[in-house]
């Protein structure tokens, strides 16, 4: 990570710390982490646990945004993934069989990948603007999930399935481990191979990339498949955690939170340079925000208001123009392109 990226993440990190610290005034034991029955408990663990679906979705969204696209359908994919897994497990003769659950997980993720291929093909082969291409699945996908579950909430009682979202391994929540493993694998794959730089080139300048011999089509489809599979895993975690499939609630409006997390993490919506660490930080920040409103005892209705204020503060703190206006001397080079509006 270059110093520049670290600098970009400075303010989000400060906000996160401030948020966490502010909790202490309302809940003195906020930072206490205890070990009960071999499980770690505490508000910080809650922040991480509740951040898991969002972090996964944001991770996938980062790659899509880096290609210059956007994926609005992630919430619907989450709903489909959860619905498929729960329906499949519900139909098993023994819902407790590990093999059956693994098969259900495989089926859900496979279907998510198909959704990703659909998005990717619409964007890169047919050439539809990403926001519109994924709007199709966003609208229709939620309908499909509701069709699958018949508009009902499907409850399942399957201990192995429950482990994904609510289990613990060596005292750590399994969902947190899953996210950590997926993020680490993604970072390794993307930064150790040439995927990262090729995706950045495609996102920053599609024409120049084509003439440099980059096959953007394959990379773009991969990004959408990755985003959809990440959303699929997030859907499994969500539905495992509540031991049911709720096609209305699963992943509702998560695309907006995920995009927000990516932007907080310093990746521009126009594509190009991206930061996975930033997106994960963004997801944790949003999760901490939700938890904080809860601890502080702000009425639940105002969570959105609170979020809006934080978004405004964060975006302004990242806006070069705003910083230039506030701290006159601390102008970054990025603030002086040729097209700059006269100050």
């Amino acid at each position: 990570m270059t110093p520049l990226v670290r600098h970009r993440l400075f303010w989000p990190a400060v906000v996160l710390v401030l948020l966490l610290v502010s909790n202490v005034f309302f809940a003195p034991r906020f930072f206490t982490i205890t070990l009960q029955d071999g499980h770690l408990y505490g508000s910080l663990i809650d922040v991480l646990r509740s951040a898991t679906p969002l972090a996964l979705v944001a991770l996938g969204m980062t790659m899509v945004i880096a290609t210059g696209g956007i994926d609005l359908s992630v919430g619907s994919v989450m709903a489909i993934s959860g619905a498929v897994a729960c329906l499949f497990i519900g139909d098993l003769s023994d819902p407790g069989s590990v093999g059956g659950v693994l098969l259900a997980v495989g089926l859900a993720l496979g279907l998510s990948a198909v959704a990703g291929i659909w998005n990717g093909v619409l964007v890169s082969v047919i050439g539809i603007q990403p926001i519109i291409a994924t709007l199709i699945l966003m609208v229709a996908g939620r309908g499909i999930a509701q069709l699958l579950t018949g508009g009902q909430i499907i409850n399942v009682s399957s201990p192995p399935f429950r482990v994904i979202g609510a289990g613990y391994l060596l005292g750590v929540p399994v969902s947190v481990i899953i996210v950590a493993v997926v993020v680490a694998a993604a970072v390794l794959l993307i930064r150790r191979s040439a995927l990262g730089v090729l995706v950045e080139a495609v996102g920053a300048s599609p024409t120049a990339s084509r003439l440099a011999g980059i096959r953007a089509r394959g990379l773009t489809i991969m990004a959408y498949v990755f985003a959809a599979v990440c959303a699929g895993i997030a859907g499994l975690i969500f539905s495992s955690n509540v031991a049911s499939a709720d096609s209305n609630a699963a992943g509702n409006l998560i695309e907006l939170d995920a995009i927000l997390a990516v932007v907080i993490g310093g990746t521009a919506l126009t594509g190009g340079r991206f930061s996975i660490a930033g997106s994960v930080l963004g997801a944790v920040l949003i999760s901490a925000l939700d938890i904080t409103t809860y601890t502080i005892g702000v009425p639940a209705e105002t969570t959105l208001l609170f979020k809006a204020v934080v978004v405004v503060i964060l975006c302004l703190s990242q806006s070069a123009a705003f910083r230039a206006a506030v701290f006159r001397r601390r102008r970054t080079p990025a603030a002086t392109p040729a097209a700059e509006v006269p100050a």
Partner: peptide
């Protein structure tokens, strides 16, 4: 003035307006 992307600025506006009406 602050060069915030429209998607993000209006998303914040969305949270703000929805939050206000809930309040």
């Amino acid at each position: 003035y602050f060069k915030v992307e429209p998607f993000i600025a209006t998303l914040a506006g969305m949270f703000l307006a929805r939050g206000l009406s809930l309040l």
